[in-house]
């Protein structure tokens, strides 16, 4: 497993530390030796297939289920045992497919969780407003759409101004507009110093939005770092595409013949060149030398999805 190095100027001690964490159910190894450090103020993404162990790891980080072995600390304190209440009060959690109480209204739902968290009830109104549900405060959750429930679940997690947010697939059921405003809220929270750990299976959605990610598969963390770190590490080929007229196709091929190119595909007037990262600049230069013969040049870096499959396959 790979951990990106923590340099001394990385804002002090990590806030969340997992060391050698395992969770075994009989012969099933849901989580099988996870080491993880998440720094204060970081927006951290945890990605993986269904059944990769993300939710189990989440539940252990929250102290909902005990680890078979290993230890998890938040702010230096263990998440289970006597001090658990103090830790819980600093944490907001949005479970995957959050289920709330249908018979309560939006505002009553927040009152309930505010009482349990020991938070002033007066916080409920502004929190509903923050997630854009102020208009539905007095409607029963029964009448809420999937997206509205998800936002109410997020509001519940924000009660009590937590230092840490654990959000399990938070954008499920949200429309693109709501997803955008959700991430805007997360960015704002980050500027306030809140640390967020988020899981998602929509990789494209989080790749531009998180500071670092960890890829989980088979109960282990296969890789972690910034998206660029991971791209470098997995060394996937990238695609350079140009548009040329059909008669110039051979010219393009010839101009690249001396370079380390993995594949050249032509489709109508589009030529796609697959090459390794180290050949990228040489390929672009060679194509640029063709001058007026090429129209339009574009570059596609491997997406987080490509990286993900690179690690989890």
């Amino acid at each position: 497993m790979v951990l990106s190095p923590l340099t001394p100027n990385d804002a002090g001690a990590p806030l969340i530390v997992a060391q050698g964490v395992r969770k075994h159910y009989g012969s099933i190894r849901a989580v099988d030796g996870v080491d993880l450090e998440i720094r204060p103020g970081e927006l951290f993404g945890l990605i993986g297939h269904n059944g990769a162990g993300k939710s189990t790891l989440f539940k252990m980080m929250l102290g909902l289920i005990p680890a078979t072995s290993g230890e998890i600390r938040i702010g230096g304190a263990p998440v289970t045992g006597r001090g658990f209440r103090a830790v819980r009060r600093t944490v907001g959690y949005l479970p995957e497919n959050v289920v709330l109480y249908d018979n309560l209204t939006g505002i009553e739902t927040l009152w309930l969780f505010a009482r349990l968290k020991g938070v002033a009830l007066a916080e409920a109104g502004p929190t509903l407003e923050r997630v854009g549900l102020a208009h539905a405060a007095k409607r029963r959750v029964r009448e809420y759409s999937k997206g509205m429930r998800q936002r109410l679940g997020f509001a519940q997690a924000l009660l009590g101004k937590p230092r840490i947010l654990f959000l399990d697939e938070p954008t499920t059921g949200l429309d693109p507009e709501a997803i955008r405003s959700f991430y805007a809220t997360l960015r704002q929270l980050r500027s306030e110093g809140v640390t967020t750990v988020i899981t998602s299976h929509i990789l494209a959605e989080i790749q531009e939005r998180v500071d670092r990610i960890a890829i989980m598969a088979g109960g282990r963390i296969q890789a972690s770092g910034t998206v660029q770190d991971l791209r470098d590490e997995v060394d996937l080929p990238l695609w350079v595409s140009v548009r040329v007229s059909k008669e110039d196709f051979e010219t393009v091929r010839a101009s690249l013949s001396h370079l380390q190119v993995e594949a050249i595909e032509a489709h109508d007037d589009l030529v796609r060149v697959r090459c390794r990262r180290e050949a990228k600049m040489a390929v672009i230069e060679a194509l640029a030398r063709l001058g007026g013969r090429i129209r339009d040049l574009s570059l596609r870096e491997p997406s987080l999805e490509d990286v993900f499959f690179g690690f989890s396959d």
Partner: peptide, 12 residues
Amino acid sequence: RGSLDLLLSMPI
């Protein structure tokens, strides 16, 4: 229903 996890994640 799936609401137990959320309840148990509270300081309770």
